[in-house]
């Protein structure tokens, strides 16, 4: 069992009070698993990804534990997290295109970062070149400044840099959002290749693009308003979703080659504000199947092997 997150709660401190961005999230990640983390904007998926590596100054760990490879991850303690960062947990950020220092040559910046993390750059030089070639970059990019590279090239440099120390867990936060469709595909495939070659043990792939995540992920976790709605193997999430939210989310996707002139169904309503979240199931107000019991928070129960769902209608049966 590689990653184990138990009842994690992370809140944002704002002037108007705490925003309950992650409110009791429990899930596990096997060795070698690529988990797609999907949900609409503001559901807490990026917050979850960030809290596994570094809490922002406004983020506060309220409760719950994280365990990686059998050891506790002290996510609330910024200093204690430092040894784990990069070595054990790494991140490909949402802003990969602007993640490189504009006034340093890329190679020099990588060397300085490695040295600061106690790694001799010379030990990693060959591996670095090999991996750059793997993602289709000339080793020559190391002598260039970030401004001389295209957005896609910078993204690939960051992918290689982030995984250079073979972390146990990689968080890929919306890495494909700013890319065109064909580049999205190749980035996603490179990430799978990184996993296959053992550069990263397991991966959390945060995205709002369900169709992309279906192509690369082994499992999919759907979040809604700070709660886990459903987690299961990618196939069964897409083919037989249990949670009403997942069902409606999938039905809102267009289908390639669809000939019926049907208009796509959106999900009526908006997600609840997380400053003062409602009790019970958070999807209740928008759910066509809601009934009295939904005023209580539904537990996340295993409805089929490896398939978990938090809904009184599907889980409780």
């Amino acid at each position: 069992m590689s990653l184990h997150v138990n009842d994690l709660k992370v809140h944002y401190r704002t002037l108007r009070g705490d925003v309950h961005a992650i409110d009791g999230v429990t899930f596990s990640l096997e060795d070698g698993e690529i988990m797609g983390l999907v949900g609409e904007s503001g559901c807490g998926k990026s917050t979850l990804g960030k809290s596994l590596i570094r809490l922002d100054s406004q983020m506060r760990h309220v409760g719950g534990t994280v365990e990686l490879d059998g050891r506790g991850v002290p996510i609330a303690d910024d200093d204690a997290m430092v040894p784990l960062r990069y070595h054990e947990v790494s991140l490909i950020p949402q802003y990969a295109m602007s993640a490189l220092n504009p006034i340093r040559r890329i190679g020099r910046m990588i060397d300085e970062l490695l040295r600061a993390r106690g790694v001799r750059p010379a030990d990693k030089a060959d591996e670095l070149r090999r991996r750059l070639e793997l993602v289709g970059l000339e080793p020559d990019v190391l002598r260039r400044f970030p401004i001389e590279l295209s957005g896609g090239m910078k993204q690939r440099v960051v992918m290689v840099l982030s995984t250079l120390l073979d972390p146990s867990l990689l968080i890929a936060d919306e890495v494909t959002s700013a890319l065109d469709v064909s580049t999205q595909r190749s980035v996603a495939e490179s990430l799978v290749e990184f996993r296959d070659r053992g550069y990263v043990r397991s991966m959390v792939f945060v995205t709002h693009d369900v169709s992309l995540v279906y192509q690369i992920a082994d499992t999919i976790m759907v979040m809604y308003a700070g709660h886990v709605a459903e987690k299961g193997p990618a196939d069964s999430i897409v083919s037989e979703p249990r949670h009403p939210y997942t069902q409606m989310l999938l039905s809102a996707l267009p289908e390639v080659g669809s000939t019926s002139g049907e208009r796509l169904q959106g999900i009526p309503g908006t997600p609840p504000g997380l400053l003062d979240p409602p009790t019970g199931c958070r999807f209740r107000a928008r759910c066509p199947m809601a009934f009295d019991k939904c005023a209580e928070r539904p537990p996340l129960v295993e409805t089929a092997p490896g398939h978990w769902s938090a809904c009184w209608k599907t889980g409780g049966e």
Binding site: R85, S90, P93, Y95, S98, A99, N101, A116, R117
Partner: peptide, 14 residues
């Protein structure tokens, strides 16, 4: 607050 600084900190740079 810039992206490159946030990224470096996330990777545990001193």
């Amino acid at each position: 607050e810039d992206d490159y600084a946030t990224y470096l900190r996330a990777l545990g740079a001193p």
